[in-house]
Nucleic acid binder design. Structure first.
Lengths: 215, 215
DNA sequence: GAGCTTAAAACGAACGATCCTTCTTTTTAG
DNA sequence: CTAAAAAGAAGGATCGTTCGTTTTAAGCTC
């Protein structure tokens, strides 16, 4: 094809990104060869290298997309008003995250959660990508801290804990759930929701004095 | 050296494992070349291949050790009697995990948490290692479920949530904390402890009827 | 609108580099 | 002196990438 429509070019680029994403989710970035990718997307080297300057750029593009999707999932969930309690806040975050790129699968399982872990390891060796991750993390952390402050202001939560610490704890729970999802297969989101709900039911008797006027 | 003492053989094996672990924590298993490992441990190929049949076996050995250490950390913490509440249970788990292989560092930072993430990705592509991970996870999950049952039996936690769900949630929190530690640098364990403590202080008003007789 | 033109798009063989591993040689400890 | 341990050059395979060739589709001509 020559002098092809912009839509075709975009579709090709996406085709390559999707095929590469599947390969990377299956085997990781560096155990996946370019030949693997070429076979998966059913294109020749010449075709792929027209759209991406090399493997590095392909990886960077995918990492960027994945980080963006996760960040959006966290930020969108936090946009709800009024902010739902933690156990319910976690549902839309994971819902959106697990639904991301649902069309891409690795032996019948969604590829995206696997991709997330792979992306984490890649940020460990690529400072540029690490900076991107840090930026998104900082943003999410700040937004979620606001929600925690709301909990405290409403007397729903003891006020003597730094909101940031609670935010990081909640983010950790979501991350860990995502890991379990990747490593052990699909888990209903309700597992985490109910788990948090149960934790929330534990009256803390050691320093019980906080705003909630007990009925 | 010829006809060398058993201790020397053991020390060599450990030297190789430690050097390789640092390399793998830095760059991942498959972006690390054998030459990288050889340079790190300051040995020749002939020496290393006397102790390990190849890269694959080296990876498997390290993955096994890492999974074992993490599993021990989780199980040991659960052995405390009486079982501490979640926020305090989490402290020894992370303490032991973060202290594992503390002598190994990647540019000044502990290598072990990074290694954990790398291990996860490796289990995604190696069914044998995946089985090992599943086994350890199942064991930890069962043991932690017991602790949750104790919470419920003592009236500290609402009894209408499956203990396994709570166990998985707590494990998720620890895993996620570990991820944050790897990706963003050292975090005091108190962050997670206080975060959980705050969550535990949230009286769940929707279905408040559970055993704890509010004083 | 059929056929030709042409430049873009895709192909795929092949290159140098690097990979993991082997194997011969050298060194070393008992 | 001897056999184990370590060395390190080199083999074969595979890697990412390039580049000359072929195919294709949009535009032009008649």
């Amino acid at each position: 094809m020559a002098r092809v429509s912009q839509e075709h070019l975009d579709a090709r680029r996406r085709q390559i990104l999707d095929g590469a994403a599947v390969c990377f989710a299956r085997n990781g970035f560096h155990a996946t060869s370019m030949q693997d990718v070429l076979k998966e997307v059913d294109l020749s080297a010449g075709a792929v290298y027209r759209y991406f300057s090399g493997k590095e750029e392909l990886i960077a593009a995918i990492v960027g997309e994945v980080l963006g999707s996760v960040r959006e999932a966290f930020e969108d969930a936090a946009r709800q008003s009024p902010p739902p309690p933690p156990d319910e806040l976690v549902v839309p975050v994971l819902g959106r995250t697990l639904a991301a790129r649902e069309n891409l699968t690795v032996d019948g399982r969604p590829a995206f959660p696997r991709l997330v872990i792979q992306v984490w390891t890649e940020t460990l060796r690529n400072e540029e990508l690490a900076a991107l991750l840090r930026e998104g993390y900082a943003s999410v952390r700040a937004i979620w801290s606001r929600i925690v402050e709301a909990y405290q202001d409403a007397g729903m939560m003891r006020p003597d804990v730094a909101p940031d610490h609670v935010a990081r704890t909640m983010i950790a729970a979501v991350m860990g759930f995502l890991v379990q999802h990747s490593l052990f297969g699909p888990i209903p989101v309700e597992v985490l929701r109910d788990g948090l709900r149960a934790l929330m039911s534990m009256s803390d008797e050691r320093t019980a004095s906080h705003g909630s006027q007990l009925g």
